[in-house]
Simulated scan of single mutants.
Amino acid sequence: MVETPAEAASGADAESDDAASRSGRDFGEAAATVAISIRGLVKQFGDNHAVAGIDLTVPAGSFYGIVGPNGAGKTTTLSIVAGLLRPDAGTVVICGIDQAKEPLAAKRVMGVLPDRLRTFDRLTGRQLLYYYGLLRGLAADVIEKRAADLARAFDLGDALSRVVSDYSAGMTKKIMLAGAMIHSPRVLVLDEPFESVDPVSSAVILDILRAYVSHGGTVILSSHGMDLVERVCSRVAIVVGGEVLAEGTIDEVRAGQTLEARFVELAGSSGEVEGLEWLHTFSD
């Protein structure tokens, strides 16, 4: 029996739909297992290559750490991932969404805590969380409920009624992290989340982040605290000079040493202690 053109076209459409369906399933499965995919990332400021061809894959549901010396390119990398900077080259895919092609969609699935705590600090903590919720398109009643839950979880208490400019550095970190989480994102991008945070607050933040990851969320963070990264992260990348020198599970990267010792071995030291003999004699 000979197919009519209409039947042939119908069959072709069916095959095309089936292929698209399979492709969509494959794409969805890939997106389900990889939260962030970074390929060939490059960012240059003048003559300085802040990021020089970084490749990273962050599995979904993981606690991923990026460590490196000052000026290594950690903040630049995370700023690009968060959509705060445009790369000169390379791609960033967030939960299956190409950031360059669909920047708004990529940002919707992320919560971001930037390195420099710039915010609307003349608002009270409650007003700031409400504003964050509105930016994320949440209904007023949902914002109020979540703000109360977050304030309780982060132990902010009466601080919600005070202006953020009166907060300590640690409290500011907590209110901004709460704001980053208010829309229940799939991925949290956190630049130095524990810097200037006291041990008690650090423990509270860690408990919240661990629970978030245990329920399928993904955290990528930068930190100078090697002990903390070694304790809480499942994978880590050591970045020096805008390049990844080591990446993998904590055990793979530290290679039988502590993470700090491995970091020092890879990063090296350019400090010179010679010539400071005058410091060994005192002026009085």
Rank of each mutant, 00 (worst) to 15 (best):
K174L: 03
G242C: 10
E15C: 02
F282Y: 12
L177S: 07
L188F: 06
L266F: 01
S37C: 02
G40I: 12
S62A: 14
A169M: 13
I97P: 06
I220Q: 09
V163T: 15
G179H: 04
H49Q: 14
L276Y: 13
R186P: 00
N48T: 15
P59D: 03
R116Q: 15
L41M: 07
D115W: 06
A180H: 11
A151V: 09
M1D: 09
L188E: 06
E252T: 10
L85E: 07
A35D: 01
D47M: 09
I220N: 05
D115S: 13
I220C: 11
V229Q: 08
D149W: 14
G242V: 09
S168I: 10
L113E: 01
G83F: 00
G111E: 04
A19E: 14
E274C: 05
L150F: 07
G256I: 05
V42E: 04
L228Q: 12
R152T: 13
H183C: 12
I54D: 00
L56I: 15
D18E: 15
G248C: 00
L160G: 03
L84I: 05
I143P: 01
E144Y: 09
K107Q: 14
A203V: 04
T4A: 10
S201D: 10
S79L: 04
A30T: 13
Q257P: 00
A246G: 07
T124Q: 11
T258E: 03
L190T: 05
I97E: 08
N48V: 15
V58C: 05
R39C: 07
I175E: 10
L150R: 05
Y64Q: 05
A140T: 11
S184D: 14
D121C: 02
I80N: 09
H280K: 14
I97N: 09
S161F: 02
G217A: 11
I80H: 02
G157V: 04
P87I: 02
L150T: 08
M176G: 04
E192I: 02
A14P: 03
I143N: 04
A20C: 00
K174C: 06
G46K: 12
A246S: 11
F263E: 04
F120Q: 12
A148Q: 14
I208D: 03
F63H: 07
M226W: 04
P114F: 02
V273G: 00
L41S: 08
V213M: 01
D149C: 07
R108Y: 05
M110G: 07
L128G: 02
L41Y: 06
G133T: 07
P59I: 01
S37H: 15
A31H: 00
S202Q: 15
S161L: 05
S234Q: 15
S270D: 15
F263S: 06
C95W: 00
L266I: 03
I94H: 03
L156T: 03
E252P: 03
L160E: 03
L78T: 12
V42Q: 11
A19W: 09
T77L: 12
C95M: 13
E272T: 14
M226A: 04
V204K: 13
G68Y: 01
S184Y: 08
Y212H: 01
S62C: 08
L228V: 12
P193F: 10
R126D: 13
D55A: 10
F154S: 06
R39E: 09
L206D: 11
G125A: 02
V92Y: 09
F63I: 03
A14F: 05
F120A: 11
L134S: 12
L135M: 15
S168E: 04
N48S: 14
G65Q: 01
R186I: 05
G241Q: 08
V229M: 12
